[in-house]
Design a protein around this nucleic acid. Structure first.
Lengths: 116, 116
DNA sequence: CCGTATCCGACACGATACTG
DNA sequence: CAGTATCGTGTCGGATACGG
């Protein structure tokens, strides 16, 4: 079962996990960030890549920008091209992203095995 | 900005993160698991510790049990005591929990610093 | 193409009350 | 104490349509 954590440790972890989930929780934020890890992308590219509605994407991008994960870049190239790009700060999430990804793979395997 | 990931890698990661979020996403699951890391807890204990409504807690616990993260233990001790306990499998989440916790702490610091 | 506005259903979530 | 039932609100999130 793993070792029990003492109460202080546990409560402090609970608090920080709360903070984290507040900032990057929800259905889309981490997925958008993951998608942008491949490359900067335009609005419609992101939409297609993630299967997200324009409404939600618009909202989430604003939020991500406000929180310093994503930058909106306007290239004055006639016609104007708008691209979304990850900031340096978004890199601080890679540990989380990697852990989630690894766990997701393992979990999927487990589920499939159990179905048989 | 960190290195870009190639498209295949990125899409596969997106998929597995999706899987992970499907299983442990949402407002409460990870918090409940974190709370139980301190010790097995009874229904009302969990409620107080997390500030969650009975309705939600009931639902989430069922879901967590169904997915093998939590076990409902009935102690026939007259009066009967019901406790919720983490399973061995829930340990596979510790990497994620730790990463989230660490990031949450750092993020909070950043926010506070920016406010000044 | 890049979004925003509007409408709408589904569900997350909480408060309260209630049962065994 | 451990939960369920009921109700009400808010947010999530898609569809569609529209303006820059």
């Amino acid at each position: 079962m793993g070792e029990l954590l003492d109460k202080k440790t546990c409560e402090s972890k609970l608090g920080s996990i709360d903070d984290a989930l507040y900032a990057i929780g929800g259905k889309w934020k981490l997925k958008i960030i993951m998608a942008l890890k491949e490359n900067t992308k335009r609005f419609n590219e992101l939409q297609r890549a993630l299967g997200i509605s324009a409404r939600m994407l618009s909202r989430e991008l604003k939020d991500l920008e406000l929180n310093g994960f994503v930058e909106r870049k306007i290239e004055h190239d006639t016609p104007v091209v708008i691209e979304y790009e990850l900031t340096e700060y978004s890199n601080s999430l890679s540990e989380i992203l990697d852990a989630l990804s690894r766990w997701g793979i393992a979990h999927r395997k487990k589920i499939i095995k159990e179905r048989q």
